[in-house]
């Protein structure tokens, strides 16, 4: 059985989908990923779909499920690199994936994950500190 590899990078899990998914493969990915979140206690999941040319309602549902499941396990899911044609089609299909965070590419996705996790508790007044730093350096 084919499998989509899941990479662990520090606190985050990284999945790059390189092939067109058929249903079973997508369902396996869903359960594998949730398992991995649990065993590694990951704080974030990053799914790169830049190589995916078709996302239909089934795939959309899987993505939504992964996001919701990770969320109750205290992990943030970010979907990155969606193709313009795929985005337009999903909207027309009626699937805006409103519960899912998105970013343009892996780099920005990582940045977003870091920010989300910081905002969610550990260093709450991080932003303010940075602003003060800025003022210091300009004066």
């Amino acid at each position: 059985m084919e499998k989509i590899p899941i990479l662990k990078m520090g606190q985050f899990l990284l999945v790059t989908i390189q092939v067109d998914l058929y249903d079973r493969l997508a369902l396996n990915l869903e359960s594998d990923l949730v398992q991995m979140v649990s065993t590694t206690e990951a704080r974030g999941v990053l799914i790169d779909i830049s190589a995916v040319s078709i996302v239909d309602s089934f795939m959309g549902r899987i993505i939504g499920n992964i996001a919701s499941m990770s969320k109750i396990m205290d992990a943030v899911t970010v979907v990155v690199g969606m193709q313009p044609a795929v985005a337009i089609t999903l909207i027309e299909l009626g699937l805006p994936l409103s519960g899912v965070h998105t970013a343009l590419n892996v780099e920005k996705g990582m940045e977003l994950l870091k920010n989300k996790i910081l905002v969610n508790g550990e260093v709450p007044d991080y932003d303010d500190d940075e602003q003060y730093d800025d003022l210091d350096s300009t004066q």
Binding site: G81, M82, V86, I91, P96, T102, G109
Partner: peptide, 12 residues
């Protein structure tokens, strides 16, 4: 609204 939602899906 569709344009806005599609932009959001792409992460912008």
């Amino acid at each position: 609204i569709k344009t806005v939602s599609a932009t959001r899906l792409m992460g912008a």
